[in-house]
Each structure stands twice: as C-alpha cells, then as structure tokens.
Computed example of a mutant assay.
Amino acid sequence: MTKVSSQHLPTFTDTESFRAFRTTPAQWLPIALDIARGHGLDTSSPHVFSAGTNLVVGLGEKLILKIFPPLLRAQFVSERGSLMQLAGHLNLPIPEIVAEGMRCGWPYLIITRLAGTLGSGVWPSLPEAQKERLLRQIGETIAAVQRAPLGALEAIEPRWDDFMRKQMQGCHSRHQRLGLAPKFLAGLDDLLRDAAKLIPMDAAPVILIGEYIPENFLLACDNGQWSLAGLFDFGDVLTGWRDYDLLGPSAFMAAGRPGRVRNLLEGFGYAKLDFALKRRLMALMLLHRASDLNAHICIEGWQEQADDLVELQELIWSG
C-alpha cells in the first residue's frame, strides 16, 4: 500500500463521535485532498457526499475517494475484497480500484466513479411497468453476483451460521425495542423456530451484498426506458444463503405488488412462490442486520392490513 503523510486523522472509539466528525467536512476534507494530491490526482473540483457511512469525496467526474475509520475497517475489507472479486464477473458496471493506501491507520480506496442517475431519485416516479422491468433486472443482477466465485471473500466475518444464530438470539428484543406491534411480536418465537429449519446454515455460501436498494444503484434512460447502469457500495458484504439478498428490494421496492414481486423472483431464478419461500423470506427479513419493519416496509398501511406475521408475509410477497 502507498503511505501518504503530512496531515493526520484523529482516533475515534465510538461511531457517534465519528459521525459528528464526518458531518463536518471542514475537519477532514483538507486531509482527503492531501491524500488525493499524494497520488497525483486533480483536486480542483471536489464534491463531498453527505450520505453514507464513511468519508467520501468525488474528485472531478471520474474518481471517488473513500476513507474508512479504523473502527469500520471491516467495511474497507468488504469493499476492497468485493470489488476485486467481482471484477469481470458482471455485465453491470461496478467501481474499479485505482489506488489504495493508509493514513494514520485509516485505510482508503480511490475508485472509479460510475455514470448514471442515482436510483433513489428516479424510482418513485417511474411507471409501474418500468418498476417491474427494473426489479427483474435487479433479480438477475443478484443471481449474477451470486454466481461469482467467493475467492478471498470466503474468509470474511461473520460466518453465515454464526451470524444467523446471533441474529436469532437477539431478534425478539431487537424488534420489541424498535416498536414492532405486539400482534406481530406474538408470532415471532414461532417464526424463529421455523427459521432454524427453513434457513440453510451449511449450504454452499454465495456473495451477499445485503443492500440492493435504490440508494446503491445507478440508472440510465434510453428512449424512455430506464435500466440498471451501475452497482456500488460493497461495505457490508457477507457470504451465506442466497435468499438474504432478496430482502432489500422486497421491502423497499416491491411494495407487495404481485407484478413487482413476480419479476424480482423470476429474475432471480425462482419460478414458484410458495408458503415455505414466503415463510423463509419473512424470517430473513426479521433477521436482517438492518431489520426495522416499521421503517422499511413500503406498503402503505401494512400494520392495519395484517393481523400477524403469516398475513404479513402474504401481504409482502403477494401473487
């Protein structure tokens, strides 16, 4: 790795302190630009990305610098390993690593900047037919990522079985704390018992991005038709059972619409949507590391439309 010196990044022991630092670019942008100059890059038109977890700055139209605090080093390992492993395995563009290095124990990546329009800015206004089309493309993309060999990602932590067991142990208390309605909490223990049988713990693992959501992909329009144009943000990659990656688009995009659900699942490779698959997806949605049903299910009035978790799974994966 290239080492660049002269300006220093502080040490943080908790994420809240780091977030406060990140949201004040004046504290770190000069250091980011110093890193970029150390690699001979143009710093005349930087653009700070306010969203996201790490320090991210665009360097003109072609490059992006991502700096990871030491307490989030696992995200650097995930991002770097995923970009290296998926290179050449997808038809969809992903960033390429141009340079990498370390500043004061903070690892960083300089990657190519993808062309396209952020999905979250386009998705809400798309006609229904185009939403169905895009969800089929997302299903196909998930399947393509999962066909790629694991390579060095095979060693990424946590391991799937350990991750699932930990999520199961904390699932009830998590959703109680997040305010899930008692009528859904009442069926949670039964669902977790089913989950232990429905979710494979030792099947051959695949690459799991974890967040196929509009904020993490780019779109392009050709003659009025929008298509996937790029995928980015690989900081939370796991390896494990393939269905886990259906949860983001199911919660944030499919909205319980049968046509959307069908296109997502068919693009992924599932021709049949039966009770067992719905039950497994419901369990995985509750076990997802970012799970918060009240915040994430995009079906208006879903709390009133379902009386228990079985009715809820039928509502989310209708059709």
Rank of each mutant, 00 (worst) to 15 (best):
L231Q: 10
A229N: 12
P214E: 10
P214F: 13
L219H: 04
F234N: 04
N223F: 05
Q225H: 11
R242Q: 12
D245F: 04
E215P: 07
L228D: 01
L218I: 10
D222E: 15
V206A: 12
L247E: 10
A220H: 14
L219N: 02
V237P: 09
V237C: 15
P214I: 13
C221S: 14
G210K: 05
G224L: 13
I213K: 11
G224K: 14
S227T: 15
I213F: 03
N223Y: 06
D236P: 04
P205W: 01
I207Y: 00
P214A: 00
W241E: 07
Y244N: 02
D222L: 07
I213E: 01
L219V: 08
L231E: 10
L208N: 03
E215W: 06
R242G: 00
G210N: 13
C221R: 12
L218C: 04
Y212M: 15
E211Y: 09
F232Q: 01
L208K: 04
I213C: 05
G230K: 03
W226H: 09
A204S: 07
P205N: 01
E211L: 08
D233A: 08
S227A: 13
Q225N: 05
L218T: 11
A203P: 06
I213A: 06
F232Y: 12
L218R: 01
G210V: 06
D236S: 12
L208Q: 09
P205G: 08
F217G: 01
R242K: 14
D245R: 11
E211P: 06
D202I: 08
N223R: 14
G230E: 00
S227R: 07
V237R: 00
L246R: 07
S227M: 06
L231F: 11
C221P: 04
E215S: 13
L219C: 12
D245W: 07
A204Q: 02
W226V: 05
W226K: 00
E211N: 15
N223A: 15
I207P: 06
E215Y: 09
A203D: 14
L246D: 01
A229R: 02
P214M: 13
L218F: 09
W241Q: 04
C221H: 02
F217N: 05
I207C: 05
W241T: 02
D236H: 08
L246S: 02
D233H: 06
Y212Q: 00
D236N: 14
C221F: 00
G240S: 07
I209Q: 14
L219F: 06
F217C: 03
I213Y: 07
T239L: 05
L228V: 15
D243N: 11
S227V: 06
I207G: 03
L238W: 02
A203R: 13
F217M: 05
T239Q: 06
Y244I: 00
L247G: 04
D233R: 10
Q225S: 13
L208I: 15
D245G: 03
A220P: 00
I209E: 04
D233Q: 10
L238N: 11
A220V: 09
